[in-house]
Design a protein around this nucleic acid. Structure first.
Lengths: 221, 221
DNA sequence: ATATTGCTTATCGGATCCAATATGCCAAAC
DNA sequence: GTTTGGCATATTGGATCCGATAAGCAATAT
């Protein structure tokens, strides 16, 4: 038999599709913080009943991306400055460790792909694509670690903060700095220097954090 | 006005109650790994329709506590030895840091409560209560950090592995060792020695990890 | 005996319907 | 003018119902 078989049992259900679309919209910032998510409205958008929408909203709440009040519906949840700062601290704790353990496992293929993402990031002129490429680059490196649980946690963490990173990449020289730091991290990886790569990753996140908090205090003054 | 007001809008919905009960049953190990969770059956148990049950199952899947296949239902998900080992590594990374930042914020009240949990743990003769008291003790210390995000992540992490810890506390001298180590951690906290408390916490988790893996290899041989 | 086919039942995903609560508005009472 | 009570509407949470798929079993053909 020569058939390109697709596993239909793994096809996404309606609720899964709604979930993923809503999640992406929240992550990208297309849905503003505090914006109410009406079940009816979403159901009509996707041409489904409210049942799969409600399951999607339950899952989003479990991920901390929306907040729900009984009989009052769900709203997109955001982060206070303190919460964002804490999330940066968390990333500074976990991501360097992932890199440390990933470096010895990086094949030439992975390093090549990472360099590709890095290049694309540096050359892109589309601010909206930056966050995407930034995440591709980091994911490429992190995935080499094959630490499924760590990666899952970091992904959920990124989902919560990426909106703010986008805003910040555009508003500052963050883009150029990120670019330089990415290449530095990449070179440490290519050199097989796990400790250096981890240290650079920590410094990178710390820089983003500081820049983020500065911009925030500017906005609030 | 002197009324002990309860916020009725925060009362749990049916789906939330089902979710919490299922989650607790999975965490405690009352529901075996691989056991299928039939919507009808659960709905009848709680005297509700399948709708809130399905929302509960969605949420459990989002937490990694069940696995769902389309049209085939949900089963309790477990951990391979590798996955469990990775989770211990993750805990060794995060929990010491939480302790480090919690120590300066521990009031006499908190330390008192922690000592209470620690005592209760050491005196309890009920193996099923150990895991509970163990978690109370650690939570008491961790909560002092007021790192909401870190705490959320650690809680979800514990939810995935607690079943295995229970089994292990009973089967070994783990109970006694944990007890000694708890008091050591507590003393470092009382002394305000954050670094020592963090180091002891890391050692504690590492000990549990090693003991866990040894028992596992025994079982498998 | 074994493999294939068709049927029956169990179970799931989703749609539709109903009850409970929230929200906004307007009139009436003070 | 402010507050109170009584609607009408919007929205949610849950129950019931329906179509689709999975899984087991019997009947048939080879």
């Amino acid at each position: 038999m020569k058939l390109t078989a697709v596993d239909i049992s793994k096809m996404a259900s309606a609720s899964t599709i709604v979930f993923q679309e809503l999640r992406n919209a929240i992550i990208k910032g297309d849905l503003a913080v505090g914006e109410p998510l009406r079940q009816d409205e979403i159901a009509k958008l996707f041409n489904v009943s409210r049942i799969p929408v409600r399951e999607a909203l339950s899952r989003l709440e479990e991920q901390g991306l929306v907040r729900t009040q009984r009989y009052r519906g769900a709203v997109v949840s955001g982060l206070s400055a303190e919460e964002a700062a804490e999330i940066f601290d968390f990333r500074m704790l976990v991501e360097p460790e992932i890199v440390r353990r990933a470096v010895p496992m990086m094949s030439a293929d992975i390093l090549g792909k990472a360099r590709g993402h890095c290049q694309a990031f540096s050359e892109s002129r589309d601010p909206m694509a930056w966050a995407e490429l930034n995440r591709d680059f980091h994911s490429e490196l992190y995935n080499a670690s094959e630490l499924k649980f760590h990666l899952e946690v970091v992904n959920n963490t990124m989902n919560r903060i990426e909106r703010y990173l986008r805003a910040q990449l555009v508003l500052s020289d963050g883009m150029e700095r990120a670019n330089v730091e990415h290449f530095a991290i990449l070179e440490a990886c290519e050199a097989g220097d796990a400790e250096e790569a981890a240290a650079l990753t920590a410094a990178h996140i710390e820089g983003v954090k500081r820049s983020f908090l500065e911009h925030l205090s500017l906005l609030q003054s």
